[in-house]
């Protein structure tokens, strides 16, 4: 069975898949890759299903050693990945296309030049135990993934058996690069979203149950001002600063369901954008929700950067999501055709 070694862990590297959608009634967070689009593309490029586990790296990437020849794909944030062989030859690696990494190579991921979260998919998937129907790391509850925690130097991860398409892609690419021994790049790539601009990004939102509780100036500020992503931001949620929003109406709320993308407003007036590891319920007013089509962009935002919100209707939000899925499906089908030739 194939394995990889973690030489250096990076800031917050975890094993993730698409999460635990069916356990929220038990208080279990959804979890899963924050940029699920990048995660899915990386998987599909190596012949995996979207549900296979990848490694999600945050801001600063890992260094990983490959024991055997392995088919991989790198998507999401640009961490300037390079491959180093035993003679210490350095080769920059392309993102968003399948690559065959020769046995004994190490891949070094640096600090992200753009975006925040980078995904490494390996044909066969990261083979950690399935807990509650998922391989995702639940960091706060410390289960799932690799030992319920972030990866650390010295960890060894098992790789599953590649699917038939993954095996064929690997054979084909491996034969093509046999004489150089270096991964060859494709003249195409599949990138689900453009990474957000590092200074200012826009997230589209729909109204929440309590948007109408905002004061007139609070609503204007929500839609017209720039918010800063605070350094106190993680997989559970992003704290937004620089703008305080006030409510016109106040009431104690009972805990109700929340989802990734929900904008909660705690009493201090600084909104919190909930991400995939948030608890499935919350008791603060819900003043909006980032639309599903923009959650990948949200996942790629960096602490310290500025964002704005733009309001769309629920119908528009769902149309955007379906368009995004259709384009992705089409691009992945094209990629499959290219790989067969």
């Amino acid at each position: 069975m194939n394995r990889i070694h973690i030489i250096r862990s990076g800031l917050c590297s975890t094993v993730q898949d698409l999460g635990r959608a069916k356990f929220r009634h038990l208080g279990v967070p959804l979890g899963g890759a924050l940029d699920s689009g990048a995660h899915e593309v990386a998987n599909r490029l190596v012949g995996n299903s979207a549900h296979a586990a990848t490694i999600e790296m945050t801001l600063t990437g890992a260094e990983i050693e490959f024991i055997a020849e392995t088919l991989i794909a790198i998507t999401g944030a640009d961490m300037a990945a390079t491959r180093h062989d035993r003679d210490n030859l350095t080769q920059p690696l392309a993102q968003h296309c399948p690559l065959v990494i020769p046995a004994g190579s190490r891949i070094r991921f640096q600090t992200a030049r753009r975006g925040c979260r980078c995904y490494l998919a390996i044909a066969g998937g990261i083979d950690v135990p399935v807990v509650m129907e998922s391989r995702s790391t639940a960091l706060r509850a410390t289960f799932g993934g690799h030992c319920g925690r972030m990866l650390v130097a010295g960890d060894e991860l098992a790789i599953g058996t590649p699917a038939e398409t993954g095996r064929q892609t690997m054979e084909r690419l491996s034969a093509k690069q046999a004489n150089t021994g270096m991964p060859i790049f494709q003249n195409w790539f599949v990138r689900p979203i453009d990474l957000p601009h590092p200074d200012m990004a826009t997230l589209r939102i729909v109204t929440g149950t309590h948007t109408s509780w905002l004061s007139r100036s609070g609503l204007a500020r929500l839609l017209e001002s720039a918010f800063r992503i605070s350094a106190h931001s993680d997989r559970m949620g992003y704290r937004l600063t620089d703008q305080q929003l006030e409510l016109e109406h106040h009431a104690e709320l009972l805990s109700e369901g929340v989802i990734p993308g929900t904008l909660q407003l705690p009493p201090d007036g600084n909104p919190i954008l909930l991400m995939a590891d948030s608890a499935p319920t919350g008791g603060y007013p819900r003043i909006g929700h980032v639309i599903a089509a923009d959650l990948s962009i949200a996942a790629q935002l960096r602490p310290g950067q500025f964002i704005r919100f733009a309001m769309v209707t629920l119908d528009q939000a769902q149309v955007f999501f379906r368009q995004q899925r259709r384009m992705l499906t089409k691009a992945l089908r094209m990629a499959e055709l290219m790989l067969e030739h």
Binding site: A21, K22, R24, H25, L254, S255, E256, G257, I259, P280, T281
Partner: peptide, 13 residues
């Protein structure tokens, strides 16, 4: 996808 109950509400995903 899933149903989750809360105190006075439930969520349909």
């Amino acid at each position: 996808l899933a149903i989750a109950p809360a105190f006075k509400s439930l969520t349909v995903y």
